[in-house]
């Protein structure tokens, strides 16, 4: 199978990745080859086989809900220059559609 450039662009948009034309062409070729190779899975009979959700014999893991000190606001904001009034500063989100 060969992915179309439109399909590559659609995947890149779902993943919010800006790609150059050269990258799109390369990923189209490489992903097509990889997916072709992976089609060998279709030959395996999995009719009555449940998918693996976890390899562990665990179900819902809960702990007691006890308040404890977290990481301070200053420390959490220390890794960006884009901040204002103790908050992360981002660009406007309401004046465009995704």
């Amino acid at each position: 199978m060969t992915l179309s450039i439109e399909e590559v662009e659609h995947i890149a948009e779902l993943a919010k990745l800006a790609l150059t034309d050269e990258e799109k062409a390369r990923y189209r070729e490489q992903l097509s080859a990889i997916l072709d190779y992976f089609n060998r899975l279709q030959a395996i009979d999995t009719d009555d086989i449940p998918p693996t959700a976890t390899v562990l014999p665990l179900h819902t893991v809960l702990r007691d809900d006890v308040p404890h000190p977290g990481i301070s606001r200053e420390e959490l904001l220390a890794n960006t220059e884009h901040k204002e009034n103790g908050m992360f500063r981002v660009e406007a989100i309401l004046d465009e559609s995704p």
Partner: peptide
């Protein structure tokens, strides 16, 4: 499909 085959590998 991959998660089902994963069960077989396990």
């Amino acid at each position: 499909k991959a998660q089902k085959v994963r069960t077989l590998i396990k």
